[in-house]
Every structure is written in C-alpha cells, then in structure tokens.
Amino acid sequence: TRVETATETAWISLVTALHLVLGLSAVLGLLLLRWQFPAHYRRLRHALW
C-alpha cells in the first residue's frame, strides 16, 4: 500500500505540473497572438462576444 500511495502522489504531481505547463503555454500563446495580431484579435473577440 505504501508503494501504491507513492505512485499515486507521483501521478498527481505529474498531472498538476502538466496542467500548469499547459495553462501557462495557453496564456503565453494568447498574449503572443494579441501582441502580434491586434486587429485580428479584436475582430476575433468581437465575433466571440
């Protein structure tokens, strides 16, 4: 049971790290898009909202 718990903890930390990385890359990508294509971003936002 001790090994299982350790594996579970490792998986949880791995998944958390993955989610953090994905979230950060998504935010960075959005910022980059907004910085590179302001007109396109505004049009996209206008279409979405």
Rank of each mutant, 00 (worst) to 15 (best):
V3A: 04
V27K: 01
R2G: 10
S13V: 12
V27M: 13
L20K: 00
W35Y: 15
V3N: 03
A6C: 09
L14T: 04
H40A: 12
A10N: 07
F37L: 09
Y41D: 03
R42K: 15
A26I: 09
L22T: 11
H19N: 02
L30N: 04
L32D: 03
H19F: 05
T7I: 11
Y41G: 06
L31F: 10
A47D: 03
L24G: 07
A39G: 15
L32K: 05
S25H: 06
S25Q: 08
H19W: 07
H40W: 08
V3E: 00
T5F: 02
S25M: 05
R34F: 01
H40V: 08
L14C: 05
S25K: 04
T16F: 10
F37S: 03
R42L: 12
F37I: 07
W49S: 00
L30V: 10
L14W: 00
R42H: 09
T7W: 14
A17L: 11
L48T: 08
L31P: 05
T16E: 04
L28M: 11
R45T: 09
W35C: 12
R43Y: 08
A47R: 14
V27N: 03
E4S: 11
A26G: 11
T7S: 13
L18N: 03
G29D: 04
L31E: 05
L32E: 03
R2N: 09
A6S: 14
L48W: 06
W11G: 02
Q36Y: 15
Q36F: 07
P38K: 15
L30C: 14
F37W: 07
L28T: 02
L18A: 02
L44P: 05
G29C: 13
R43D: 09
V3D: 01
L31S: 11
Y41C: 14
L31G: 03
A26D: 00
L18S: 00
Q36V: 15
Q36I: 15
V15N: 01
L30S: 09
S25T: 13
R45W: 00
E8N: 00
T1L: 13
T5K: 02
T5N: 00
L20P: 05
R45G: 04
R2M: 15
V15C: 06
A26C: 13
L22A: 14
L30F: 12
L44C: 10
E8L: 05
E8V: 02
L22S: 11
V15R: 03
A17M: 10
A10Y: 05
S13E: 05
V21W: 04
L28Y: 06
A47M: 09
L30I: 12
L44V: 14
A26F: 14
Q36T: 15
G23I: 12
A6T: 14
A6D: 05
H46N: 13
R2P: 12
V27W: 10
W35V: 15
L31C: 15
H19S: 02
I12V: 12
R2E: 10
L20F: 11
R34Y: 08
T5R: 01
A6R: 11
A26R: 04
H46F: 02
R45V: 07
H40D: 02
L20A: 12
G29V: 14
R45A: 08
W11C: 07
F37M: 09
G29T: 15
P38V: 09
A6E: 08
L33Q: 05
H19T: 05
R42D: 11
L14K: 01
L24T: 05
T5E: 00
V3G: 00
A17I: 11
H46G: 09
L48E: 05
W11S: 01
L20E: 00
G29H: 00
T7M: 14
R2W: 12
R2L: 13
L32I: 09
L33G: 04
R34A: 06
L18K: 02
Y41I: 13
T7D: 05
R45Q: 08
V15Q: 06
A39W: 10
A26P: 00
S25R: 04
A39P: 06
F37G: 00
L22K: 04
W35A: 15
L28S: 02
H40Y: 08
V3L: 10
H40M: 11
H46M: 08
A10M: 09
Q36C: 06
I12R: 08
R42G: 14
A39L: 14
T1S: 11
L48G: 02
A10L: 05
T1N: 07
W11M: 08
L48S: 05
R43C: 09
E8Q: 03
W35Q: 15
R43W: 08
L18H: 05
W11A: 04
T16C: 11
W49T: 07
A47S: 10
T1R: 10
L28H: 03
H46C: 13
L28N: 02
A26E: 03
V15E: 02
L31W: 12
L22N: 01
A26N: 00
W11H: 09
L20N: 02
H46K: 06
I12E: 01
A39I: 11
H46V: 10
L33H: 06
V3C: 02
T5I: 01
L28E: 03
W35R: 15
E4Q: 11
L14E: 00
V27P: 02
R45I: 05
G23K: 01
V27A: 10
L44S: 03
T7C: 01
R45P: 05
T1A: 14
A47C: 08
